[in-house]
């Protein structure tokens, strides 16, 4: 029991914080209901996928700075492919864009392994490249999304056996998020590969000596990150109906949520649940600020301050947890 608490204590605390924030929201805005929760879930969607992308790589002991740019590229690709195309064509676009994310993510990993340049530099260079590619695909915000895709995040999922009032609290966007993450994450977590990802993040040398294929595992981790980023890009296109070539603030948000979610920036620790709850916490704070009728620009400042503070706190914890005198 104590072991469970130690392992899951952070996530449990975070969940309590989320509940507390919901209560605060309800106090600020007594009318806060299922519809608002639905829009919260829609707003969380791209952030959650960005965070999932970052989490996989951070657990493997790396960092991916190209997450936001990857989302921009996949988003504009999807939007420009679906522009003027038939509804059925989108059935082809979705797997294509996901495969693109997977391949580009794997490219990140291959470049890191082959050039032996640190991940932070490789993904920074990839950030430039992907941003440029996004601009080449679509010079200005535009494109379109298929109607059925747009409909897939709006409204609620009718769950058999649940009364209507409870049904209203199950937005499609949330279900989509949970399903997508579970399909990839749960089999991974239980497989040898998932163990390898944790192993190389925890101690690369030890993992190598125990026979973990370090290079292959790293490439796969980055490929998965690319896949999640592509899901994020798709969800951006779906929820806005267009694609924008300039990346949003997803890089900093993803790092902040990873830190807040209890995943150590050194690697090897944490899971996916914590960061996802952290995203909800960060978005809900934003909602509360908006409900308090604070100027949206000021909200952006406060949000930025919170994210920077969280990242600082995470770095501080990491520093403390290392033996004294060691270089971080």
């Amino acid at each position: 029991m104590s072991r469970f608490l130690r392992n899951q204590g952070w996530v449990a605390g975070l969940f309590a914080l989320l509940i507390f924030l919901f209560v605060v929201t309800k106090l600020i805005q007594p009318g806060y209901g299922s519809g608002d929760f639905g829009s919260l879930a829609r707003a969380v969607l791209p952030y959650a996928f960005a965070v999932a992308a970052q989490t996989v790589v951070v657990i493997a002991g790396g960092i991916d700075l190209s997450v936001a740019a990857m989302m921009a590229l996949t988003s504009v690709t999807a939007a420009s492919m679906m522009n003027g195309a038939s509804e059925e064509y989108a059935l082809f676009v979705v797997p294509f864009v996901l495969a693109m994310g997977l391949v580009l993510g794997a490219l990140n990993g291959v470049l890191i392994v082959v050039t032996r340049v640190p991940d932070i530099v490789v993904t920074l260079a990839m950030l430039f490249v992907l941003q440029g590619a996004a601009l080449l695909v679509l010079g200005a915000p535009g494109g379109a999304a298929a109607e059925w895709l747009k409909a897939s995040v709006i409204g609620t999922v009718p769950v058999p056996g649940l009364p209507d009032w409870a049904d209203a609290w199950v937005p499609k966007a949330l279900v989509l998020l949970v399903v997508c993450l579970c399909i990839v994450w749960i089999p991974l977590r239980r497989s040898r590969l998932g163990l390898s990802i944790y192993a190389i993040g925890s101690n690369e040398l030890a993992a190598f000596r125990s026979g973990v294929p370090v290079a292959r595992t790293r490439i796969i981790a980055y490929a998965l990150s690319g896949l999640f980023a592509a899901l994020g890009g798709l969800s951006l296109t779906i929820s806005t109906g267009i694609g924008a070539p300039i990346p949003g603030p997803y890089l900093l948000a993803s790092v902040a949520a990873v830190v807040l979610g209890g995943v150590a920036l050194g690697g090897g620790k944490g899971g996916l649940l914590g960061p996802i709850i952290a995203v909800f916490v960060l978005r809900l704070v934003r909602t509360d600020l908006t409900l308090l009728a604070i100027d949206p620009n000021v909200t952006a400042i406060i949000e930025g301050l919170i994210m920077v503070a969280v990242v600082m706190f995470g770095a501080f914890i990491t520093m403390r947890s290392r033996p004294a005198g060691a270089t971080p």
């Binding site: 470049l111 050039t115 340049v117 530099v121 490789v122 920074l124 260079a125 990839m126 950030l127 430039f128 490249v129 941003q131 440029g132 590619a133 996004a134 601009l135 080449l136 695909v137 010079g139 070539p245």
Partner: peptide, 15 residues
């Protein structure tokens, strides 16, 4: 060469 191409080139140069 459009702006996008330039950025790609700069990224490749850095790497």
């Amino acid at each position: 060469m459009p702006e996008g191409g330039r950025r790609i080139l700069f990224g490749c140069i850095v790497l």
